[in-house]
């Protein structure tokens, strides 16, 4: 099967998943107890006012009609109006999506090459002091939740030795790259976690590849050791490592939510937490859907890279 057909099929499947997610989101928000109109007007609102608001927001229509109207609007890019900000959701979401993407991209750019290098080195010198130290450090880091690492870093670098800002608050509409110092700590927290996880996976699959018959065959061809490691072993070890990154994309997004909230970084994750707190239903629905899309696309990309690396999966 050709690669493009496979990708097409995966995109179709992704669409199916998104429909399911939208249904679920809609169901959770609308069926669970709690009333949007009450949330907006407060407990002291008169029944007449509540009824008027409900009819204005279309909340008195049947569920099916409301879902179709909502999804129709979403598809046209009309994400509704935020109840908390009293502004259209779309521009807010777009700006924050960009901010989160910048954060995630920087984390990946830094952590992936470092993790691969550490993993390869640990595997090549398996059992050495260096390998054991790296494994221990990785387990330790990974066992600590992000907010603990984040709080420790804030304590050390912003309070005890105030060299870096402990918060990444910024003016709406601003590009986060314009205040790079504020990015250092959030990135550091995420990178440490990614590094711990990914380097150990790379190590495991490298050890596997280095012990394989084809690596032995390459060595016995008389090829130089570095070439054997990079061309023969790493190529095969990358596929499982990258598949793992794809599988853990949801985990990375979870990390973003925690870190953005901790550092008051204006990203999608923080927006989601805020809209839950404010019962800002339109924003919440849009945010969840956007995160679902990001998750699906991230997985798809990881799959495509794995396919490129592993010819066996293609046939």
């Amino acid at each position: 099967m050709s690669l493009s057909r496979l990708i097409l099929r995966r995109v179709a499947l992704l669409a199916l998943v998104l429909v399911a997610v939208s249904l679920l989101t809609f169901a959770i928000v609308n069926i669970l107890p709690g009333d949007v109109a009450t949330a907006i007007l407060g407990e002291s609102a008169t029944p007449a006012d509540l009824a008027a608001l409900r009819s204005r927001m279309g909340l008195d229509l049947p569920l099916g009609t409301r879902y179709l109207t909502w999804i129709g609007h979403m598809l046209r890019g009309d994400f509704g109006t935020s109840l908390a900000f009293n502004l259209p959701v779309a521009p807010i979401l777009l700006w924050r999506l960009g901010n989160s993407a910048i954060l995630a991209a920087l984390v990946l750019i830094i952590s992936v090459p470092c993790a691969l290098t550490l993993g390869v080195v640990a595997a090549v010198y398996e059992g050495s002091l260096l390998d054991r130290f790296l494994s221990l450090a990785a387990v330790f880091t990974f066992a600590l939740p992000e907010f603990v690492i984040g709080l420790v870093l804030i304590l050390v670098f912003s309070i005890l030795y105030p060299v870096l800002p402990g918060s990444s608050l910024m003016e709406p509409g601003l590009n986060p790259l314009s205040q790079p110092l504020a990015l250092v700590l959030p990135i550091l927290v995420l990178v440490l976690h990614q590094l711990a996880h990914l380097s150990q996976i790379t190590r495991a699959s490298m050890i596997n590849a280095l012990g394989s018959n084809y690596v032995r065959a390459a060595r016995l061809k008389g090829l130089p050791p570095a070439l054997v490691v990079v061309k023969h072993a790493l190529r095969n070890a990358l596929a499982p490592a990258i598949a793992e990154v794809g599988m853990n994309f949801g985990y990375v997004l979870g990390g973003l939510v925690v870190v953005e909230t901790l550092f008051s970084y204006a990203g999608v994750g923080q927006l989601m937490v805020m809209s839950v707190e404010n019962r800002d239903v339109p924003t919440l629905e849009a945010t969840v859907l956007v995160i679902a899309v990001a998750y699906g696309v991230g997985n798809l990309l990881a799959d495509i890279v794995s396919l490129r690396l592993n010819p066996r999966l293609r046939s």
Binding site: Y214, A217, G222, H232, R235, N236, A239, N310, R312
Partner: peptide, 18 residues
Amino acid sequence: GRSIAMVYQDPLSSLNPT
């Protein structure tokens, strides 16, 4: 590989799949 070369028992596992 130059003066002494080897042929292995299980050819598939001795060839790099990628």
